[in-house]
Computed example of a mutant assay.
Amino acid sequence: MTRIGIILGSTRPNRKGAQVADWVLDQASTRGDADYDLIDLRDHPLPHFDEPVPPMFGPSENESTRAWSERIAACDGFVIVTPEYNGGYPGVVKNALDHLFAEWNNKAVGFVSYGVNGGARAVVQLRAVCSALGLADVGYQVGISILTDFENHTTFVPTDAHTAALGKTLDQLIAWTTALAPLRSTESTLINS
Rank of each mutant, 00 (worst) to 15 (best):
V53G: 12
L41Y: 13
H48K: 04
E61Y: 12
S64F: 01
H44F: 00
I39E: 03
P54A: 12
F49V: 10
H48M: 05
E51F: 06
M56I: 13
R42P: 01
R66A: 13
P55K: 09
S64M: 05
P55Y: 13
A67W: 01
L46Y: 05
D43A: 00
P55S: 14
I39A: 04
P59R: 15
H48R: 05
S69M: 04
T65P: 06
W68L: 03
P55T: 12
F49G: 07
W68T: 01
P54L: 12
D50R: 11
P54Y: 13
G58W: 08
M56H: 06
D40V: 02
H44I: 00
R42V: 00
E63L: 07
G58I: 08
A67Y: 03
D43G: 01
E63H: 07
D40M: 01
F57P: 08
R66N: 15
L38R: 07
E63C: 05
S69L: 03
P45G: 00
M56S: 08
P47Q: 10
M56Q: 08
V53W: 09
V53K: 15
G58V: 06
E61W: 05
L46N: 01
S69D: 06
P47C: 07
A67I: 06
S64G: 02
G58A: 12
M56K: 14
G58C: 08
D37Y: 07
R66V: 07
E63T: 04
L46D: 02
P59A: 15
H48P: 01
P47V: 06
G58F: 06
L41C: 01
G58L: 11
F57E: 10
A67R: 13
R42H: 00
E63Y: 04
